[in-house]
Design a protein around this nucleic acid. Sequence first.
DNA 1: CATGAATGAGGTTTCATTCAT
DNA 2: AATGAATGAAACCTCATTCAT
Lengths: 186, 186, 186, 186
Amino acid sequence: MTAIKPLRADARRNRARILVAAEVVFVEKGPTASTDEVAERAGVAIGTVFRHFPTKKDLLQALVKDLMLRLTDEVTTLATEADPATALFDFFTRMVDQAAAKKTVVDLLAESGVDIHVAQPIQSLREAIGQLLTRAQHAGAVRTDVGLDEVLALLTSTSQGALHAGWDPTLQRRTLTILFDGLRPC
Amino acid sequence: MTAIKPLRADARRNRARILVAAEVVFVEKGPTASTDEVAERAGVAIGTVFRHFPTKKDLLQALVKDLMLRLTDEVTTLATEADPATALFDFFTRMVDQAAAKKTVVDLLAESGVDIHVAQPIQSLREAIGQLLTRAQHAGAVRTDVGLDEVLALLTSTSQGALHAGWDPTLQRRTLTILFDGLRPC
Amino acid sequence: MTAIKPLRADARRNRARILVAAEVVFVEKGPTASTDEVAERAGVAIGTVFRHFPTKKDLLQALVKDLMLRLTDEVTTLATEADPATALFDFFTRMVDQAAAKKTVVDLLAESGVDIHVAQPIQSLREAIGQLLTRAQHAGAVRTDVGLDEVLALLTSTSQGALHAGWDPTLQRRTLTILFDGLRPC
Amino acid sequence: MTAIKPLRADARRNRARILVAAEVVFVEKGPTASTDEVAERAGVAIGTVFRHFPTKKDLLQALVKDLMLRLTDEVTTLATEADPATALFDFFTRMVDQAAAKKTVVDLLAESGVDIHVAQPIQSLREAIGQLLTRAQHAGAVRTDVGLDEVLALLTSTSQGALHAGWDPTLQRRTLTILFDGLRPC
DNA sequence: CATGAATGAGGTTTCATTCAT
DNA sequence: AATGAATGAAACCTCATTCAT
């Protein structure tokens, strides 16, 4: 149980602005973009960035954690509210779309050799996606011999692939179609 | 048409050693590894690296070009000698295996924001893979409504995905199986 | 004549705690230790340190002043109550002992380029030691051609020397013995 | 046995210039002076300083080592050529004089928390001074119950003491006189 | 008065690239 | 052509000091 110290209003505001700025900057220039640039974009001084994230690594990790939490929320909603037969495919599609629009932080993480110490958020996401899969299988929309690991592997691969040049939306659909056909019972 | 100046024997030897060293180093540490380290590993002085490749970018591009040529050779052989029905899947599998073993240079390229000026080698590779695909389709092993672009997209995605932690060989096979099922006629 | 504003009870308490903390921290890490660390050790916020001591320099100076006052007290007691023939040597010995135990603030001062504006406390200490010397000379324990300046010079030198590695207590005694022999009449 | 790689002429020249500049700068401003300033004074770029001394610590240590070597030379000359009865006192006096003229690097070292890894040069110096002492004792100029450790302790103390404000040359002589009286047989 | 977040100059260090040897 | 020292911009990070809460 970690007692999280409540931050002062301005500090919390700055923390948020830094994370937003960091996402934008790193998405644009990759994880080698300078911390200075993040600070400038966030409209704070460089020292403020380092007060909140003592290391660049810490900043990247916080970014990942954040993204994971947002994703988990989204997936959980789908898992409880959407049509089981299509929810997994919908999520898959949405994720790849997002990845294509901006270099995901999952990617940043992979590229910058950050040691993953965000186990818990990742675990939550994994479980949420697991629900999607199970429900899709119960609904007969996905083969029962497909495991969560394969789904995740395909998801991350395709998301990252979508980042690279030359994937127009049409190509994405066609690629996903092939994948989905592989996942379907027949 | 560029007239290629014939290099002195020792110069050509050095060029080769640098490329080998660069591949090893960048595979190990990612594209942010220092050029110094490449030089040391190649057993030459840093100045020699820059004489052959005026820029780090140039070094990366040469690496990509090199890899493309090797891959094209391999694919061409498959396309003319192997069983049409399985050649595409074999190649696909082999490529993912290699990617899992070492960060491919395709990846390096993507990460370092290198402007792609290796059009020609890439084009050759593309065409060679196109042959594999066509022959597989003629042999009835692949759906005829699948295009070369989708195949390439899936190939690069999966290759890059294979780099990331947690893909044991078994997972790779299972993931590829799903993909291949998606590509097959039924 | 500076009218000293009476401080509120909590402010006075904080001031004292900061000084104690500063002595501990600077003794441990040298005068380059960060003011943050002093604040943390004192259990106050950084702003509180700067309210009491507008500058790091001020903090160092206050520390020196404090030490001088304590030393002067001690010497004055010796000068009025102890055996004249041994009081100087006793004091000398005690001071070197203390210096060996913890980096004196005199030393801190010297290292941090602080302009000496602690003239008055230093003057008092000087006079107190002067008394010790005079009385020792009257008692025939110290040569009469030795001046206060020399005594102070030897005192500070030896105190600082005692800080450096390799001065075990035995070596301190032997070194002081030589010094004292030099100070004695014959 | 460390094989010392012979440096290129310009590299050796730069190394020397950096050391000279460092001595000047650190003497003037203390060990907290910036490495940038050393570079500027040496007329080289900042990167050159760090090529020769990868860390500020390294630069300080090299400075110490250098000084030790020069001192050892000086002492050895005295030990073989000068009058045994006065050589020790001469050296002692000269060292204190130098210390008074410029903050010695021994002092810098002590202040900057540098781990001493200059054992060998220090040992040589120690031995050279030991010779001075032995010869002075044989010549009847120093008490035979005085050890090398005490002499060194007094030497470093007095040298450092001489750095601090208020030691005019006259005071130095008088202080040394007392010390020397303590060392002499009577 | 106390707090502690924000500031931003400045320090150390790295690294692609140039150039004298 | 090879060498490797020099360059210097830019990165990361620290810390004395200010100021809103």
